[in-house]
């Protein structure tokens, strides 16, 4: 069976829509089906940009961390960096209300700070500095940092 739309390729997508007894059958090839967005939920998943009607009320907002503008967000549907969430807060909140069931994260927390003691935080900080020092081949500093880490860990074990 040939595609209803292009009349060239074989139809591989078949759909039947029944509205109050009026049955409409559509037979499309893969390319035309993609164009017709059959089986595609991109539209549903993409952020709704109705909120950008509000654009006129705003100056062109720009993220001070990454230089991303509101127009960039509008065009791509993507943000430029984590700081953009602060800069475009109002627009994002408006968007989130439409696409998410809630506006507050209730899931897993980033287990960095709250699960660590002060000493563990200090060790972690030094370990990151150590990694950096090794990457930069600054072995003198790395040796010093390693000593500090060992001392802190020993202190921790003796507590």
């Amino acid at each position: 069976m040939l595609c209803d739309k292009c009349k060239k390729n074989n139809a591989t997508f078949h759909s039947t829509v029944n509205i109050n007894g009026n049955v409409t059958e559509t037979h499309l090839c893969e390319n035309c089906a993609k164009e017709n967005k059959l089986f595609s939920f991109n539209n549903f998943l993409s952020p709704s940009f109705d909120s950008f009607d509000l654009l006129n009320d705003f100056e062109e907002l720009t993220c001070d961390n990454c230089g991303y503008t509101l127009s960039d967000f509008q065009e791509s549907g993507l943000l430029g960096c984590s700081n953009c969430y602060n800069v475009f807060k109002e627009i994002i909140n408006d968007n989130l209300q439409k696409i998410q069931p809630g506006n507050v994260h209730v899931g897993k927390k980033l287990n960095l700070e709250e699960n660590l003691t002060e000493k563990e935080k200090e060790i972690k900080k030094l370990e990151l500095q150590l990694k950096q020092a090794v990457n930069e081949e600054n072995y003198e500093l790395a040796g010093e940092l390693k000593k500090q880490i060992i001392a802190l860990k020993e202190g921790q074990n003796n507590e």
Partner: peptide
């Protein structure tokens, strides 16, 4: 969890894990 100990993930107390597209923000799941 292990990765989050050595990498500084973008996280916000209210919005959770911050992602490039707002459709993934929160759990990122």
């Amino acid at each position: 969890n292990e990765l989050s100990l050595s990498l500084d993930f973008a996280y916000d107390e209210k919005l959770g894990f911050l992602t490039a597209c707002p459709t993934n923000v929160g759990t990122g799941l």
